[in-house]
Structures are given as C-alpha cells and as structure tokens.
Design a protein around this nucleic acid. Structure first.
Length: 484
RNA sequence: GCCGCCUUAGCUCAGUUGGUUAGAGCGCUAGAUUGUGGAUCUAGAGGUCCCCGGUUCAACUCUGGGAGGCGGUACCA
C-alpha cells in the first residue's frame, strides 16, 4: 500500500457532540422509556411518531434572540432546493401535525412522543447535539386543568422511575406573572424588548447566582469567575427593587396587584387542583423564578427539578437541576392556520435524567451474556450448532463460537461476553454422549482463592459433565441459580 | 460567542534545558500449559509525538495560526 494511500485513510472518529451508546445503557434506556410510557398512557395520552426531518419552514424559526439569528438547527437542501431541518424538539412537529390534521383530530388532542432531537450547538458537560426527549402535550384545551394535569404527570413519572418523593420538585410559574412584573417595573413597549429579555434571564438565574448576582444583572452587569462579562439590563434602582421584591415575596401576596392578577389566579387554581388530588407543596410548588423558553410560552410554565445532591468521582457535589419542563403555548398552531389553538405540554430530557439516575446508585446489574458453545473440533460444527439451537429454542441466549481461535481464546471470549457458562464437547465427551458445562461465574470465584498454577490446572473449578440429553435442563438451572 | 486548561501506543500517562534507534503500566496477540477464563514468567505486535506554517544545521520539544477534547460562562426552542 502506497504512502499516499495510507495518508488518505479516514480517521475513525465521532462527530462532535455525538456519542455511541452501548448495550448496558441501551438496556437501561429501554427500561426507562417503558416506565415513562406507562405513566403517559395511564394519563390518556396516545403515541404519535413524526419524522426526524421536516421542512425548515414547517419547523419554524424559534430563534428570536437577537444574538444568534439562525444558529442551532441542522439544515440542508433537498434535490429540489427546498430547505430541510432535523427537528430540534418534539413540539414544533406536533404543531405541524395538528395544523395538518386539524379537521379529523379529537379535540382536545392528547399525544405523547419520544425520540431523538438535534441541536447544532456547542456541546457541554452532559449536553450533546443529539439527545432524547419524551413529551406529552394536550392541544385544544385552554383550561388550567390541562396544565395541572401535566404537573401531576411529571411527578408521577419521576416516582415511577425511582426518584423518591422529596428528591424532586415540580416548580410552576406563569408567563402572565412575569408579564405583570415587567409592566409593574415599567418595561412595556418596543424599545424595552431587549431589556425584558435580559430581566427574565436574570430572574431565571436566581437559584444559581442569588439575589446579589441577579441585582448585578438587572443593573450594569456581572463579571463571572471565568472572566466573562454579562451585560446587565441597566434598570434604575427603583425598577431593580421592584423585581427583587417580586422574587422575595410569595406569589399569593401579589393577588391584590392588578398587574399580577391574571397570573396569580391561574397559579392558585392550579395549586388547588393539584392539592385536591393529593399533590401538595412537597411535590408541586409555585415558584416565581421559573422562566423557561423566552419566546413561545404564554401561560403557566413548569420545570421538573432533582433536588438531591450526589458526589461525582472526585467527591465534588453535583446538582442535577432541571430534567424536564414545559408550559402553555397558545400561539404555535396559529403559525399555520391563523387560528389560535391553546396547547400545553411537558417534556422530559431522557438522556439527562438517565445520567442522574445512574448516579444515584441504581446498582449496575451485570446482565448475563449468552451461553457460549465451544468449537473443539471443526468437523463437528453441525453438532455444536444443533446444541446451540436447542438452547435457543428453550429461550436461553446462546451462541456457537464463530471465530477461528483455539480453546483458550474461546474461553477468554466467553469471559469477555460475561457468559454464565460454556459448553464443551471434545472427543472424550462425545464418546460418552456427554457434554461438559463450565460455570464461569463460580469458576471466577474459585480462581480468586487459587494462587498456584498446578492446583488451578488440577482443580478445574466449577465444571461438570452431563448427558447430552440433559444439557438444556442443566444450563437452565445454572442460569436460574445466578439470576436468583 | 467569551475565558482557562489540555492533545505523545488501543487506554492512563512519563519524557526530551531543541540532537540521530520516543518510554512505562494496563490492555492486546502468542508461548511456557498436546483440551480450560485467573495468577506467574517470556516474547511479539502497536506511534505521521493533533494538523499547517515559521525560526533552526537540526523541531515531538521554541513560535504563529488552526482543529479537537475538557472545564467555566453565555445561550438553550
């Protein structure tokens, strides 16, 4: 092979921000999505799958931030030069679907969906450019009951996944409340649009930066430890006081202020509905610091937060924070039909939640690999394959070794596959109509106690011979022993 | 986007004040063990020292730029 050829070989590498997921994690993922699905279906939502790719204009451009007008979405042009994009959430495709099938859908329409979504952004710790979301949305219901229901669904889902009560919280606020705050602070009008965004972003950071940090962001700005300067909203001291005051007093105390009336009414009603169903403050709690997406929410917004702390490998405490969220978006379908359709939804960040759950000590249950039938004699492959099929027909994971290496390598292979046992039939056993079953798990335990090679050889721990006819039964018993 | 750190074997990392054949541990392959995963010993394979330019007799090392990774921060539909 020429040198030029060698140099032109591609490097085996992953695209930035993407990752491979291997068997154990996929298994955990499947378990998890199964449990989530069960809760969602119990709440009466029906499954809907839409494609990962849509026409760009159908997905819409929800990138109102002045800073980055068009980043964030993976897009490309089709043959006919139409722009297509990978979906960046599951809500935009839902809006398209509802608009397209409006006539025939039952209203309200309740659907759940899960799948990978894609964002063309810089990946960060625990953040990738492909990740899984699991959504439930109700379209066509304007009452607050629909929102309350999603909060309860969120709580039930987390508990179904093994998060203990008290280790999570569903926080609820309302965009109307924040609108009230902005007008109370005198920030109405076109020329204050930028400031409004900055104020909301500052409010969103309260739990991380505290009152002090938020005050800086409301005023001149704030410089963080990394040296980055975040420009502030440049509010007057009086305006800042207004915002800080709002953050410090309970939501209900705003009830007499007309600016906050609509938001407070909604939230108190939501709280009442949840409380009546047994979901008290320890699970679903009003919290005026919840902000969420800035552009499209129009009513209640909620966020599911894990509240426990966990130490990472270096012993440093890690907070997981938000693992899901949602809210009411009444304008999304109107983009297509011109008709205002009320909608509300909740979305779980599956990948993130899974990372959190794996850290709170779900003991890694080593799943057993397949039984491996060793090939002792290449002339007897048909016999080995027959044994393999007999095990498979009995519902036992099994495979005949398909490589070309010797017995020792085959044993190592079985070891690496985490096999419960291997099946050995060389000429000795065949002459007697027997097979040797070697229990790899017991064998490993025995090996720990044996230091001397001679002893190891002579002991040949944890193996026994049985008649061919009893192979399936014996293997079945062995596996059962290790699983129990 | 902004700030900081990092990039040498499959993995984790040494190393060279710029000098000719770049190292370790683990892992991998094989042998000691004619049919047995562990342990021990032995041997072997495996590297454009991230990329491109500059300085130099000489660059893996110095320098400029770039890419990638990590960690903050910003943004997050």
């Amino acid at each position: 092979m020429s040198k030029a050829n060698t140099n032109s070989r591609p490097e085996a590498r992953l695209a930035k921000g993407f990752r491979d997921i291997e068997a154990p994690e996929l298994k955990a993922l499947a378990d998890m999505t199964g449990k989530i699905r069960e809760v969602y279906e119990r709440y009466g939502f029906d499954a809907l799958e839409t494609p990962a790719i849509e026409y760009t204009d159908a997905l819409g451009k929800f990138l109102p931030d002045q800073d980055r007008p068009n980043a964030g979405v993976f897009s490309f042009q089709d043959e006919d030069e139409q722009w297509m994009s990978l979906r960046y959430d599951l809500t935009a495709p839902l809006a398209r679907y509802v608009a397209q099938n409006y006539q025939s859908l039952p209203k309200p329409f309740r659907r759940y969906a899960f799948g990978n979504v894609y964002r063309n952004e810089k990946p960060g710790p625990g953040r990738f450019r492909q990740f899984m979301q699991f959504d439930a949305d109700t379209v066509g219901a304007e009452g607050i009951a629909a929102d309350a229901e999603l909060c309860m669904l969120a709580a039930d889902t987390l508990e179904a996944l093994g998060v203990k009560r008290g280790d999570y919280r569903i926080k609820v606020s309302s965009r109307k409340l924040l609108d009230g705050l902005l007008s109370a602070a005198g920030l109405e009008g076109e020329d204050n649009a930028g400031r409004r965004l900055t104020v909301l972003r500052a409010v969103d950071k309260l739990d991380r930066l505290g009152i002090e940090g938020v005050s800086q962001l409301l005023g001149k700005g704030r410089k963080d430890e990394s040296g980055d300067f975040t420009k502030g909203a440049d509010l007057t001291p009086a305006q800042t006081m207004e915002v800080i005051g709002f953050l410090e007093r309970p939501i209900a105390e705003n009830a007499n202020n007309p600016a906050f009336q609509a938001g407070v009414d909604d939230l108190l009603k939501l709280q009442e509905i949840c409380a009546a169903a047994g979901y008290e403050d320890n699970r679903i709690r009003l919290d005026q610091t919840v902000v969420r997406g800035l552009e499209y929410y129009t009513g209640p917004v909620f966020e599911a937060e894990l509240t426990f702390e966990v130490k990472d490998e270096d012993g440093k405490p890690v907070r997981f924070g938000s693992v899901g969220g949602g809210g009411r978006y009444d304008d999304l379908v109107a983009r297509f039909t011109g008709e205002k359709v009320p909608a509300t939804g909740f979305s779980i960040g599956v990948s993130r939640l899974q990372a959190a759950l794996s850290l709170i000590g779900e003991k890694k249950v080593e799943t057993l690999g397949p039984v491996v039938i060793l090939v002792m004699d290449k002339g007897e492959i048909a016999t080995y394959q027959k044994m393999t099929q007999a095990l498979r027909n009995a519902g036992i994971r099994a495979e005949m070794y398909l490589g070309s290496s010797g017995m020792k390598a085959q044993m190592k292979y079985a070891d690496k596959r985490n096999s419960p046992c291997v099946i050995i039939q060389g000429s000795d056993e065949r002459a007697k109509g027997e097979v040797t079953i070697k229990d790899l798990i017991e064998g490993a335990k025995a090996a720990a106690a044996i230091k001397d090679n001679k002893e190891w050889k002579e002991a040949r721990p944890a193996q026994f011979s049985v008649s061919e006819n009893h192979l399936v039964q014996e293997v079945h018993n062995l596996i059962k022993r290790h699983q129990g």
